[in-house]
Design a protein around this nucleic acid. Structure first.
Length: 661
RNA sequence: CGCGGGGUGGAGCAGCCUGGUAGCUCGUUGGGCUCAUAACCCAAAGGUCGAAGGUUCAAAUCCUUCCCCCGCAACCA
């Protein structure tokens, strides 16, 4: 644990071209919870997030849009900033790598490394993937394709500048071994160590020729090059300290207490960034924590699947606080998790509406009904055993919460708080204040019940605050306890034994609405093609735009263009599965004059045997191609989108090779 | 033999490393209560722990084989 009084936490700087999704929200919310917790506890917190705005993809996207790259970034940046506002992110600064001050710092560090002979120029020849903006080694490249994105790679030879990363290998291994908390969780630490121990760490290319990529930070010692994106990006953690505060604050906050990263960029941080810092003679961050990824409804999130969760829509539906709660409550931090609306509804209802929300609601109503709207002082014990259990749990809570936050065990903390809520519910039921209210002789006991639950809520509000800032504020507001969460809250204001009483409450609306679970599992599969328009005015349909269905080709082709495609009937002579392939079948077909070998991706739908003898339709003049090493001399026609639904066949018996038009 | 993850009451998961009464949340059923957002409290039902072998006094847990599911990778010409 980082024991300094400062706490510097970062998220990665997100790529400005991305659409903000649940993953971005996750990291940022987690960082925010930590920042809020430590501010509450009086530490000197600095919380940084921001955007990575350089690189080829930005340059390309801007060019495509016909705008200046900077303008392109300026247009996109607010998407993130607006989301963070909605999500109640309390970052102290928002860095953008295109800011001049950032570039200056990057250049200064580059110059230092260059002057110390830690950067050298060399020729690099390798396989380059334009899309990923990176070179691949010989054994990475498979069949001329980028192992990452499967696009073709090109042989490229160019001069570049290299950072002597390799020479720090042993030092880094040693460092990781000596510092248990440097890379977390442990599984990730082992992963990095495994990587470092089994292969030789090479030097790192840190430049790109301007001829290929101009959108970047120019190297101070060679204006024909810009800095490679990682060097530029990682330095943000330091550069922000130099110009985002009133006074330069590297001394004050560096080394960072915590870099939160997704597991995909752990190596970059653990190896590149660490060795860069070593070379700069700067201390390494205290902890780099790699968290897991979210799937959606059990599937990986991807643009092509169209299941990317927009945090904005979740906030619209559930509110920012419930969303924040869900993200950190659902899964142990570090592991992968699954987001689904059903889970979101269930958690929101059971933990928040039925838990915290309902506890506050019933408590306040009782205070109104049985105590004239004022939280009473402690009276006589009502149910000593339960009161003792509550007290024990409550007194231990501050320490437990801190321990949980230190180990980033958000989920454990939230479950613990939920336990206290449940214990209060049990206490209320068993002490039955509504009965105690009947006779004056029981009133001292009634007072104790109400006071005890109110104190529990006071405590809960404080520790729920980092997770749900708005809700916490509403809880204390309704309880009538003035707690200002925007500044450190001394423990004396919420400690279990800190007295509470004679406080006038302000009961307000429910904290969380109960959400009726919609029919889950039944996805709205079919927008019935006919009348899915929520529209009006059927009469006024403009005649001209008998628009094609959305999936159809947007433009017409001429009959001549169609004539270029030779469709023919073909009789299947044999069919067999392509070994090791999931969906490929190798077909031999006759088109009368000749035989063709066709590889078709229909193996999920059809057993080879059932196809033999069938007459199908093929594209006869398609350029042959190799699929898994097997030549395919044509293409079979089949209905279906990504999934094959059925083959095109002929009703009547026709000769193989008959033209289809 | 491509890489990896997983199969535990209706659902989602923990337990498995370091064998020894199978646990949690949700759901279901019955009861209670009436302060509360049809909420809350109590109780119950419900599992041959994917299958088969093996090791052992004892296996969800260790070993072997097999089956199935899910990612990723390779291909839907």
């Amino acid at each position: 644990m980082d024991t300094r009084t400062t706490f510097y936490v970062t998220t990665p700087i997100y790529y400005v071209n991305d659409v903000p999704h649940i993953g971005h929200a996750y990291t940022t919310v987690a960082a925010d919870v930590l920042a809020r917790y430590w501010r509450l506890r009086g530490r000197d917190v600095w919380f940084l997030t921001g955007l990575d705005e350089h690189g080829q993809k930005v340059q390309q996207a801007a060019a495509k849009a016909g705008v200046d790259p900077q303008l392109h970034c300026d247009n996109l940046a607010p998407r993130f900033q607006a989301l963070w506002t909605r999500l109640e992110i309390s970052n102290d600064a928002f860095i953008r790598t295109t800011e001049p001050q950032h570039k200056t710092v990057v250049q200064r560090y580059l110059q230092v490394l260059f002057d110390n002979n830690l950067i050298y120029k060399d020729t690099y020849t390798g396989w380059y993937c334009t899309f990923d903006e990176r070179f691949w080694t010989e054994k990475d490249v498979e069949q001329g394709l980028c192992p990452d994105c499967r696009r073709p790679v090109e042989r490229l030879s160019e001069h570049n500048y290299f950072f002597r990363m390799g020479q720090y290998q042993d030092q880094l291994i040693h460092y990781i071994n000596q510092h248990e908390e440097f890379i977390r969780p442990d599984s990730r630490r082992n992963e990095v160590l495994g990587f470092l121990n089994t292969q030789k760490l090479g030097d790192l290319s840190i430049s790109r020729p301007k001829s290929r990529l101009s959108w970047g930070v120019e190297l101070p010692f060679d204006k024909d090059y810009v800095a490679y994106v990682w060097f530029d990006a990682l330095v943000n953690y330091l550069s922000a300290l130099e110009y985002k505060l009133p006074a330069p604050s590297v001394q004050r906050y560096w080394p960072a207490s915590l870099h939160l990263v997704g597991k995909d960029i752990l190596t970059t941080h653990a190896v590149y960034w660490s060795t860069m810092l070593m070379a700069l003679d700067l201390p390494l961050p205290h902890t780099i924590f790699a968290h897991g990824w979210w799937t959606v409804d059990g599937e990986k999130m991807s643009k092509s699947r169209g299941n990317v969760v927009d945090p904005n829509t979740v906030i619209d539906e559930f509110g920012a606080d419930a969303f924040r709660y869900f993200l950190l409550r659902e899964v142990p931090f570090g592991q992968d998790g699954d987001f689904s609306k059903a889970a979101m509804v269930s958690t929101s209802n059971s933990d928040l509406a039925n838990g915290l929300g309902n506890l506050l609601s019933r408590t306040l109503t009782m205070v109104e009904r049985f105590s004239g709207g004022t939280i009473p002082q402690v009276g006589a014990p009502a149910l000593e055993a339960l009161e003792e259990r509550i007290a024990t749990m409550a007194r231990a809570l501050p320490t437990e919460m801190t321990r949980g936050v230190e180990s980033l065990a958000f989920r454990d903390n939230l479950l613990r708080l939920r336990e206290l809520v449940a214990l209060c519910d049990e206490y209320i039921d068993k002490s039955a204040p509504w009965n105690l209210a009947r006779q004056a002789v029981d009133h001292p006991r009634l007072q104790t019940v109400l006071n005890t639950v109110a104190r529990a809520l006071r405590l809960l509000s404080v520790f729920y605050y980092p997770f749900m800032p708005k809700i916490a504020q509403r809880v204390v507001q309704q309880l009538g306890i003035p707690v200002d969460f925007s500044r450190p809250v001394p423990e004396s204001t919420y400690a279990w034994d800190a007295p509470l009483g004679n406080v006038k409450i302000n009961k307000g609306p429910a904290l969380f609405p109960r959400i009726e679970p919609t029919r889950q599992g039944v996805k709205p599969v079919s927008e019935s093609p006919a009348s899915s328009q929520p529209g009006t005015a059927p009469a006024a349909m403009p005649v001209a735009s008998t628009s094609p269905p959305p999936s159809a080709a947007p433009t017409h082709i001429t009959i001549d263009e169609f004539a270029k495609i030779q469709l023919k009937t073909a009789k299947v002579l044999s069919a067999e599965r392509v070994p090791k392939s999931e969906k490929l079948l190798k077909l031999h077909v006759s088109i009368g004059t000749e035989e063709r070998q066709i590889v078709a991706g229909i193996g999920k739908k059809y057993e080879p045997d059932t196809l033999v003898g069938k007459t199908i339709v093929i594209v006869a003049n398609l350029k042959p191609a190799k699929l898994m090493g097997i030549e395919s001399q044509g293409m079979v026609l089949a209905a279906g989108d990504s999934e094959v639904r059925g083959l095109v066949t002929i009703l009547e018996e026709v000769e193989p090779g008959t033209k289809v038009k």
